[in-house]
Design a protein around this nucleic acid. Sequence first.
DNA 1: TAAAATAGTTGACAAAAGCAGATATTAATG
DNA 2: CATTAATATCTGCTTTTGTCAACTATTTTA
Lengths: 308, 308
Amino acid sequence: MIDNSKNKIATIRQFNRYYTNVLGLLDKHILESELSLSEARVLHEIAATDGCTSKMLIDMLCIDSGYLSRVLDRLEKCGFINKAKSPSDKRAHLLSLTSKGFNKMAALNGHSDKQIQEMISGLSEEETSVLANSMLNIRNTLTHQRPRPEDVTIRHDLRPGDAGCIIAMHARIYRAEYDYCTSFEGYVAQSFCEFLLNYNPERDRLWVAEHLGAPVGCIGVVNHGSRAQLRWFLLSSEYRGIGLGKKLMNMALDFCRQCGYDSVFLDTTSDLPLAISMYTKAGFVKISEKDNNVWREGVTELEFELKL
Amino acid sequence: MIDNSKNKIATIRQFNRYYTNVLGLLDKHILESELSLSEARVLHEIAATDGCTSKMLIDMLCIDSGYLSRVLDRLEKCGFINKAKSPSDKRAHLLSLTSKGFNKMAALNGHSDKQIQEMISGLSEEETSVLANSMLNIRNTLTHQRPRPEDVTIRHDLRPGDAGCIIAMHARIYRAEYDYCTSFEGYVAQSFCEFLLNYNPERDRLWVAEHLGAPVGCIGVVNHGSRAQLRWFLLSSEYRGIGLGKKLMNMALDFCRQCGYDSVFLDTTSDLPLAISMYTKAGFVKISEKDNNVWREGVTELEFELKL
DNA sequence: TAAAATAGTTGACAAAAGCAGATATTAATG
DNA sequence: CATTAATATCTGCTTTTGTCAACTATTTTA
């Protein structure tokens, strides 16, 4: 782990220098097309930007306005873009790609992809994933992007390591948010031990929500004869409030209905008002409560139930 | 997770375009110095390269030889670099920085750092770490660097999530290398449950080896009265053979001696000849063996012991 | 309604980068 | 060993890229 902020900045600086070289190498193919690097960048930005104008390109690409004007002229003469008077502002033009422009861009991307393919040809599947995920991480971090729920995948195929990751997630989140002690991770481990040793794909299920290859949420259903137990309902804080919790809950309850369980019960604590409100919204009813001071002082354990 | 290779390539292409913009922004500060971007890159490369010559710069920076010749002239006239005839090849010059050149480079780095600082000022500690680690990941992956043992940190402060991560690591590695089944992860979880519920920092210890913020190896010592149990001795495959295993083992045994344990025992299986050879090298002796067909067919469980 | 600001264009110019040929030296080949 | 091929660098010339400032047309602000 890179520990102090000075090291981090140095790491970033070194990466920038390194990646300047990488990009220089990869951009060479553009020079072999009839376009210059700037022209290619402008073309891409026009394609990616809705209602694109010169001003927007100047801001996004930090390009000189005079230079851009000539670049746009050239692109128009080549038949790659259209310039249309903006109806809302007669000074400005709306820029858009022609179909020829789209084809050109596709060709550029194709070349680019071939080069990237070559660059990663010596890497393993695993390494390529690490690479792509790291790049997504950087972009998301620097653009302050909140994760979009459609980028989060949910699966229930119980891969090796799923249980361990979710144990770790529980421990970290409950420590950070509720200051639970070390033994809490032990109890979660215990619960997964039981789950894994008795695992029956027909009656038990664990859903893992993943983003950028890392687990960000989960929910589980555990077989108890005619009753099912809902367990491990948890989301990383950044992934709350975007509908993921509801989605996980619905998946779990649908599975319970499919399996023909009579009812679903769950244990939770008074620490989790947000989860509790989701349970009651889904129709769960509190059926018992008792004190539990093991993980933290003053916690009340609650049991909820939902008749199916 | 980015699933297929087409998506990965597209992700990389998008990142490249995105990062071109980032670098363009960050490189602006150089234009405000008396150097051009190329001159600054050349200066850095000379500083970083031992016995640097023009040819090496041409290869590394992909710069035109004629252009480079002039760039070097300018840098020499400014007093930033020295050109000395190479003794081994009278055609070539050895390039090196003058002290003035070093100062200039330090100033450039300072400016660069200030800009980076500004860029990451809106990010949390956590996000900055993700950023820097992702960048290191990219560089290490693309340059095919084997992890250096000195970049791996080993700690034993038992943080929340450590146990879960190590459970996951066990499950993944034993599945990939020995095809152990799902229940194996359950048994590992069970062992950590016991460990965490009885954890006593004076007598129990868990070491986690980390690289780029992720666990890559571990070893543990568990209190059994006058005897200690060695557990969870494991390294990710890429981190084997660089002395890390020995280091972990020594740390664990030193701790056992410090605690005054009489002996150390451990359970392992016939599947792990590499680990077994490390145990015997450390002085462990086999004291029993029995069959165990739970995790995989035909596995023999072995018990080893070391008198301290 | 006049002044200030904005979107974009154009001409003049400077800086950056590339190409081709030249020179000195070294390596390779018969 | 002599000759040829290859290499490292430099120089003159050219093209490409990028910058600056002045200018028009329009919109916003005071």
